[in-house]
Design a protein around this nucleic acid. Structure first.
Lengths: 233, 233
DNA sequence: CCTTTTCGTGTGGAAATGACACTAAGTCAA
DNA sequence: TTGACTTAGTGTCATTTCCACACGAAAAGG
């Protein structure tokens, strides 16, 4: 109900927000995008980008909008993580947040702090600062989810440039899973999945043999997906 | 803000509800608990038990409360499924629902329609009626999640009585996964996990050899869980 | 005591997994 | 031009896991 100075409801309602855990891959490490809050509460703390859901707006759309508003990012992959609604998580009032996690390619964005953010920056997941609200917990759940997802579905490609080498891909998997992988076995498995297309070019950089470039082929994946299948890394 | 006739906020807020997909196991089939709505919209339709989240109330607690209010059920296992917030899912206004799924043992409840429900009844997942709102979709996601979860974590025991036979357990898994399993391999695998304790009793019913009774041992599971492990069915 | 019904058990062949080390191809500097 | 250096790329074998498969055991009831 629209009144003179606000919207009135018969029963009290918690506020509803979305927060995004945006993953990137840089410097051989898995990174998370954080913004520095410019407003109370938690002014000056690092937090996840996010904001209020508008009435009539889809949750996923709200997450995408906040991402683009607060950090100039267009996510290649966006998936819901879950709802976080512990009563004390926001000191002001009861705020329920629907968290999303996203994967972005380096280059599909330009960091731009805006709205109520002072700064936006990538942080390695290994050494995060203390986060505002319950965002530390949310990031933890997101990392777990990413690890589980990456083993069974080809989402990792959204963190690499379109053309990449197998060594780069392996480095990405090692960074996400936090463990070393055997080079020969990794290549065997990845190629056996038949999701990659070898490009007619190589990457030539440095004093050594050049590396074959590949790209992820969504068509091949779609074809396999259709006739029920699953893989393990 | 508390006013004469309601609560007023500066910006419009979607309403926030919880809905529960309650799984049971009866007659050799996986079942879902549905209630028949007594109020518009969708009066007379079958729907998931659920209701509004109160301000200051935890989401999981709200789910548990609605379950006990609307169906007299105390869930043995309760996990969040995710938030469903498509703008048109409720014809009245924008309602975001956080869905939970639960497992209950036959006997840990007595069905009791209450609140705004006309009736509460179990329905086999194979032949559900058309559901109100987007509840059909929610049930679909829940079944998927249950299938995935049951393969990797010992949650199925929450659907069986405390004492059960391996044949019953296998029947449960077959009902959930929707496929037949090999008896000898199933028993080998389950026993190899070392999560069950054989009881000093047998189930003697009918003109045939009696079956060994087992119970799930949470301590054994906790011990394994601690030193990182994972199993597949 | 014979029939019926479900309970409970082991083996072998096939496939998947995982450990492991050297050659290939390029750059650069002597 | 040649040799040193660096990263790319490749195959085998032993072990483990997976999966298909059939029959004796124990009780009840007529």
């Amino acid at each position: 109900m629209r009144g003179k100075k606000g919207y009135t409801y018969e029963y009290a309602r918690p506020a509803l927000t979305v927060d995004c855990v945006v993953f990137g891959f840089g410097g051989g490490e898995l990174e998370v995008l954080l913004i520095e809050r410019g407003l109370a509460p938690y002014e000056g703390w690092w937090a996840l980008p996010g904001g209020f859901v508008r009435v009539g707006e889809d949750l996923g759309a709200a997450a995408g909008r906040e991402l683009s508003e607060e950090a100039g990012i267009d996510a290649g992959y966006l998936e819901q993580l879950g709802a976080f609604g512990a009563p004390g998580r926001d000191p002001r009032e009861h705020v329920v947040s629907v968290a999303y996690w996203a994967l972005v390619r380096p280059g599909d964005y330009r960091l731009a702090a805006a709205t109520d953010a002072v700064a936006a920056r990538w942080h390695g997941v290994g050494a995060l600062p203390r986060l505002a609200f319950d965002h530390g917990e949310i990031v933890g759940v997101a990392v777990e989810r990413l690890r589980a997802r990456v083993r069974h579905q080809p989402v990792g490609f959204n963190l690499l440039p379109e053309k990449f080498t197998l060594t780069e891909l392996q480095g990405l998997y090692e960074a996400i899973l936090g463990e070393g992988l055997d080079k020969r076995n990794f290549r065997k498995r990845v190629l056996a999945l038949d999701l990659l297309t070898a490009l007619p070019e190589e990457r030539r950089e440095g004093a050594h043999r050049p590396a074959q470039l590949y790209r992820f082929d969504p068509d091949k994946y779609a074809r396999l997906e259709r006739r029920g299948f699953h893989f393990e890394l």
